[in-house]
Amino acid sequence: MEMDKKLVIPGDFLSDDAKQADEGTYVENGKVFSSVFGIASLKDRIRVVPLSGKYIPRAGDMVIGVIKEIAFSNWIVDIRSPYEGLLHISEFPRRIESADMPKYLNIGESIMTLVRDVDANMKVELTLNDQRLRPVKEGRVIEVTPSKVPRLIGRGGSMIAMLKNETGCNIFIGQNGRVWITGKDKGMDLAARAILKIERETHISGLTDRITRFLKEEKGGKPKEKEPEKEEPEKIETAPAEQEEKQEEETEPLPAEEEKVKEHKPGGILDELLGNGK
């Protein structure tokens, strides 16, 4: 661990300088104490990053949600928090009828969504009215501890950029610790393993270097005794692709929205969502 950081438990004394108290701390009698079990950093501001904990939504956060209920004019969205998100029908990028809501977004489907507002009662309002947003229809979503999201992103986005680069995947990190990975099977697998490694090792110094080395080694096909690769390279492109198609036929008629999105840039999320409802 770096020198200016240390592991603390709730109640540990951190500083006499109450003015510097930040997240993960509390002040009593002018002294700063840790309020969580986590890593304290005493440089500049005094803050403690918890080693675990739930996501608490804030306005402006981009998160990945899962539709868990459809109530009258609201989708109720699990955002991996003690508080469910409400996506009002009017926050859908187009005017739709209440009866049609399940056609556009049904229970069990995932979305990238934006926290529009959180009130004092922790009523969480979500929106899809933002061009950056997407329905999450392919790839994988894995979960990490929300407090570790900043580390996963890295300074100035360095970690995530490196991950994308090395795995050839597109990676979106929701503030609620849900990470959406799209790409080829092998790349997604590698990305998922790297992300879980980052999560476990956030507290150890030299993280970026270690992850870079890990990715290089894994890709370099270094013989590993522990877990022989289950995937045969040629299988990746053929069999699963066929399967995906087959599955689409069996379930909802999903549009081939991939290309479409790239073509009509401004359409973005709307096109994708409407595709589902056609």
Binding site: I9, P10, Y26, V36, K54
Partner: peptide, 11 residues
Amino acid sequence: LADAGIPMKSL
């Protein structure tokens, strides 16, 4: 409680 990341004054 501490392991769950719950904010507390102390153990």
